[in-house]
């Protein structure tokens, strides 16, 4: 990361009553970065976003936006803008007036702000809907209006609070592609809050994984996915298998906890030739097979151990109760420093 970070947190804490919603969080978001905050609900990611926007003030710690202290600065004096989870479009204004609101507030002449609002609506592919009311738009269209309204004032940082949460799957996937393209086009730092690991992995330059008010891991999507630092990250980011110390000893590994991605596991018959060099296997029985189109998810149990494997559809027939061996390469095992 070069230059001044777009957003910097230094041991920021925000309490609500007895709960530390954000607990001594430090982070730095690079300028122009697509930065995601990923975590389950209540993990503090939205509060972090609201701290950047200025809707919350930290109880302790320090926040900088492009090198400037943000504590005590009201939201309307910050050069960051938010796309709200519920879009928060003004119901009594037309789409055009909604988009032009930030320009109107800044005292821009009517003709100018109309033109800019129009350009921005064009960018989000909504031109021609200026005179509609938000209530007359679909969820996807509202989402784009909210995006245009936030971008029209050229924020230094755009904050997005689960913006795709209310859309259906197909639209969500389409918007992921568009959002990423848009971010490249406008070159603005995006801070993106989501609980959907797929969304975070597919769009972000870096991901911060939140749990219980703390950041448990920060890294590129592949780092977080391939080399989770803890059992929580392994499980939350894509449901990796966790091999605990006892199991590790059982299959002849050095003591410690390891993560193992489901797609790295092969399921072979129990009578297949023993694993080749550099590979290991756990013999057990098939507990469950879930058909998911292109892949099958198979759960193999061996005593206390349960491994989830994702295998291509069309392989050998597998049914619950069958004796099998779950096989994987040693290189697929990622040791975790912190088991939790």
């Amino acid at each position: 990361m070069n230059g001044t970070p777009a957003v910097r947190f230094e041991k920021v804490t925000r309490r609500f009553g007895d709960v530390r919603a954000v607990d001594a969080v430090s982070l730095a978001v690079g300028s122009g970065e697509f930065f995601s905050m990923l975590g389950p609900s209540g993990s503090g990611k939205t509060t972090c976003l609201r701290l950047i926007a200025g809707f919350e003030q930290p109880d302790s710690g320090h926040i900088e936006i492009f090198g400037e202290t943000a504590e005590g600065v009201p939201p309307y004096r910050r050069s960051v803008n938010t796309v709200f989870q519920d879009y928060a479009l003004f119901p009594h204004m037309s789409v055009g007036d909604n988009v032009a609101y930030g320009l109107m507030v800044r005292g821009m002449a009517k003709a100018d702000r109309r033109r800019r609002a129009h350009e921005m609506l064009e960018l989000v592919k909504l031109s021609g809907l200026e005179d509609r009311r938000p209530a007359a738009l679909s969820g996807g269209q509202r989402q784009r209006v909210a995006l245009a309204r936030a971008l029209v004032v050229h924020p230094k940082v755009l904050l997005l609070d689960e913006p795709l949460g209310a859309l259906d799957l197909k639209l969500r996937e389409q918007m992921q592609v568009e959002l990423k393209a848009l971010q490249r086009e406008v070159g603005i730092t995006f801070v993106y809050v989501t609980h959907d690991q797929g969304e975070a992995l597919s769009m972000s330059d870096r991901v911060a994984v939140f749990n219980q008010g703390r950041i448990v891991q920060v890294g590129t999507p592949s780092e977080v996915y391939e080399r989770p630092s803890s059992r929580f990250v392994a499980d939350f980011v894509g449901g990796a298998n966790v091999i605990d110390a006892a199991t590790a000893r059982q299959i002849g590994l050095r003591p410690g906890a390891y993560s193992l991605r489901p797609e790295k596991i092969d399921v072979v018959g129990a009578d297949a030739p023993p694993p080749a060099a550099g590979r290991r296997g756990i013999t057990g029985t098939v507990a469950m097979v879930l058909y998911q189109g292109a892949v099958r998810r198979v759960q193999v149990t061996a005593g206390e151990v349960a491994l989830n494997a994702t295998i291509p559809a069309g392989g050998p027939e597998l049914a619950p109760g069958m004796a099998v061996r779950a096989e994987f390469a040693d290189s697929a095992l990622h040791p975790m420093a912190d088991p939790w």
């Binding site: 926007a53 200025g54 809707f55 009201p74 939201p75 309307y76 960051v80 803008n81 938010t82 709200f84 989870q85 519920d86 928060a88 479009l89 003004f90 119901p91 609101y101 930030g102 507030v105 800044r106 309204r149 936030a150 004032v153």
Partner: peptide
Amino acid sequence: SLIEASADLGG
């Protein structure tokens, strides 16, 4: 959120 949105946009 509407009140926050207005402040967010500079109001």
